[in-house]
Design a protein around this nucleic acid. Sequence first.
DNA 1: TAGATTGTTAATCGATTAACAATC
DNA 2: TAGATTGTTAATCGATTAACAATC
Lengths: 217, 217
Amino acid sequence: MNDKKKISMAVIRRLPKYHRYLQELLDKGVMRISSKELSKIIGFTASQIRQDLNNFGGFGQQGYGYNVQELFLGIQEILALKQTYKTVIIGAGNMGQALANYPWNQTSGFEIQALFDINPKLVGLTIHGLHIYDIETLSDYIQENQINVAFICTPKERAQEIADILSKTSIQGIWNFSPIDLDGLDDIVVENVHLSDSLFVLSYLLNEDADEESERR
Amino acid sequence: MNDKKKISMAVIRRLPKYHRYLQELLDKGVMRISSKELSKIIGFTASQIRQDLNNFGGFGQQGYGYNVQELFLGIQEILALKQTYKTVIIGAGNMGQALANYPWNQTSGFEIQALFDINPKLVGLTIHGLHIYDIETLSDYIQENQINVAFICTPKERAQEIADILSKTSIQGIWNFSPIDLDGLDDIVVENVHLSDSLFVLSYLLNEDADEESERR
DNA sequence: TAGATTGTTAATCGATTAACAATC
DNA sequence: TAGATTGTTAATCGATTAACAATC
C-alpha cells in the first residue's frame, strides 16, 4: 500500500528554490518553461530538474515543457504552504522580535500567536499586536490554544530546558535558532538555523580564497 | 606545488558542529576523546569523523584518540576564526539590528563597524554603539575603512542593488539574509541564510509526518 | 607486550549527470 | 509529420561506511 518512495532531503531542500524562481516567472507572466530554460536561471542541471520533479509525478509534458503555474502550485502543495500552523515564539529578544515582525504567513501557513520570555521587563508587553507571556505559562498556553509549532530564539543556556518543556506538549515542530542541537525531541520535527555555523563557514571560505591566492605566488 | 586537495563542502559544513561539541568537551575538562566516543555525542559515524579530520592531517594518535584541546584549536584555525573581518550591516531593520546586537566577535573574527539604511528615520541613529549611515555613503565607507564583509539584511526588493554596489568595491564576503540569490558577485564569497527556505522545509516535514500517519491507517 | 585506536584503502551507498526512447 | 522535450533508465561521480594494517 505504501508505495510512496521516500524523497531524499537533498531534493526537499531544493524545493524552496524552485518555488522562488517559479514565483518570479509567474509574476513575469511566463506561461511555460522547459527544464533547459529553467536550468539556465536556477542553476541546477536540466537533468536534475527533471529528476527532482519526477519524484512527485508528471508535472511536465513531452515536447512542451512545464506549465509554470501548474508547477508552482504543485510545489506549493508539496511544501504544504497552504496548511496553517499555529505558532509561538519563545524568547522575545532581538531575534524573536525580528521573527515576530516578519510576515511569514504571506508565503506560508505559519501564524504567530504569541511570544514568551523569562524577562519580567518584557513579559506583559505587546509588540506589533503580539503579547509577550511569561515562559511559566508556555506549556498551558500550547495545550489550550492547540499550538503546532514553536520558534526557539532563547540564548543557548535556556534552549534545552525549553526543549524539555516542549517535548511534554503536543507541539509538532520546532524552528530552532539557538546555537545548539536539542535533545529528547523524538516525535517532533526540528529544523535548525544555526547562524553561527553559517558564519563560520563564511569565515572558512574567506580564508580558503586567501590561501589559494598565496599558493599561486 | 599545489598538492592541497580541495575539501568538499559536505566536510566544511560539518566543521562548525565539531567546533561546538569540542568547545563543550573542553569546558567540561575532557582531555582526550576517541572517534567512537565523539561519534556517540555528535551523531556522525566514527568512520566519518576520522575521514573528516584526516582531510586536515594528523590530529589523532593511534591507540589514544584525539587531544580535545589540540583538535579544538586545530578546527578553530581551519575555520580561520582568529582572523578578523571588518564588517558592515546593510539594512537596519529588525534582522539587521538583531545581528548587530549579537556578539559574533566572541567566537569569530567578524567585527561590526556600522550599519547602513535607506530610511531617513533610521539614518543618524546609534544602536548599541553602532552608527546607522545613509546607504548612499556605503561604497565610500567600505573603501575608506577597508571593510571586508557585508551582512545584507534589506528587503528582497533592495538586495540586488546592494549587491551591484558591493560588486564594485573591494568587499571579500557577503552574508546574505535576503530571500533571493544575488547575481554578479563573481569574486566575492557569498554565504546565504535563506530563512524562508528553511521554514518551507519545516512546513514540508510537518506535513510529511502527517502523510505517513494517514497512510498507516 | 597487548590493547586500543588511528590513518587509510576498499567497498558500498546515494546522488547527480548522461542518454535516449516515449510522446506530445 | 517533424521537432522538441519529457520521463526514465543507465552510467558516473562523490560521499559515506567498513575494514584492517600501522602504530602508539
